[in-house]
Design a protein around this nucleic acid. Sequence first.
DNA 1: CCGTATTTGTCCGTATGTATG
DNA 2: ACATACATACGGACAAATACG
Lengths: 227, 227
Amino acid sequence: MNTTASLPPINALTLVQSASLSHLVADSIEEMILGGTLRPGVRLNEVTLAQQFGISRGPLREALSMLEGSGLITQEKNRSAHVRQISLAEAADIYDVRAGLDAAAGRLLAQRISDEQLQTLRVMTSAMHKVQPDDVDRFHELNLRFHDTIVAMTGNAVLIDQYRKLCKLLVLFRRRNLMAPMAIPMFAEEHATIVDFIAERDGMGAAEALFAHAQGGKMRMMKDGEM
Amino acid sequence: MNTTASLPPINALTLVQSASLSHLVADSIEEMILGGTLRPGVRLNEVTLAQQFGISRGPLREALSMLEGSGLITQEKNRSAHVRQISLAEAADIYDVRAGLDAAAGRLLAQRISDEQLQTLRVMTSAMHKVQPDDVDRFHELNLRFHDTIVAMTGNAVLIDQYRKLCKLLVLFRRRNLMAPMAIPMFAEEHATIVDFIAERDGMGAAEALFAHAQGGKMRMMKDGEM
DNA sequence: CCGTATTTGTCCGTATGTATG
DNA sequence: ACATACATACGGACAAATACG
């Protein structure tokens, strides 16, 4: 039992006892970062954070160690931890790696996709075709889900893990993913093409299409960055 | 000052003050794992380890948290940490992801390689052609270095980081990388082909060749595993 | 299956050195 | 140069879970 007051902290850390406190807190901080409560560059004071969560410094420091490993925060010796800031150049690097993982996922999935999975992808692409041309947010969400689904369908836990970690990092990049409304139909069309390659079991074609598709996204991001 | 004895522990943790104790210890444990001092499956007792390093449990637990994040150890609540064991299926997954990163690296490098870098790669491939057919270990080392060099030459820090983490994980796979001596010339030839693609700035060709090359390695590994 | 020993998870107090205004 | 805030690390403590005989 806690000897301290342990009033209901920021998030409900209770209820789940399957994971250790440090894991719970790490997940909680991660949510706060990804959700925008803790913005990039924000300083993370150990005592303050520990008090907010109603825990001691020990588990909190362990949580910070984990978060540093996943790249969500940075730590320098004897200096406070900070929520990581991703520069334009770093974001470009992440985009490139993610493109590589996208391509790998497509290639692998083309070797092993089931009819049912294919059906799911088809439903997703048709849904994207129906998005209102000005509903950029909606399309952006569907786009992320489409690519995540392709990765998830490979069943490769290592790939899924790495891919999602990269996606999380991109949230730390300051610029919002601006997508020109007129680019939406083209994007939807590219998705359909990708699914076609996978359906034909053309791993190479799928990989190429996915990489090019991702590179297109990167280019738009870079262009925004220069402005 | 240390109030404890702090006799020279297993490794020399002193001298470097740029990183925190937990980082130093994490690196040290990582070395012990990769070097074979700590074999897969070995139980890691907190107090014992802490005593061996001459530190307290706090920093040691932080180090373990980091190592869990990089996949070198596993932790379950209320149970000792263990050096991770990689199953055949997991190794296969890792091989696939690494193949994807290899392909991505080749594709990126084809876009930006310098003449000097190209020269370096050519030297490496010619060195591989000259390896004695029975010197499997030597070739294996050159092989790892060749691929690491391609990745490193991209200058993409994220890619380099992920790639090397995956390579480390494969060390935890129990089976040694058996390579049939007769396969060596073929491997060397494939490397030469890959460099040719990169030299021609054919990113797609390089990616395909690298992925196929890596898949070949995976196949041999899987076959050994089944025996 | 039970009782005991071990080990982890967590907290607290404290000392020390490093950064910051 | 000084004071304050803070991170780093130590050590002791104890409950609870686990491992063991």
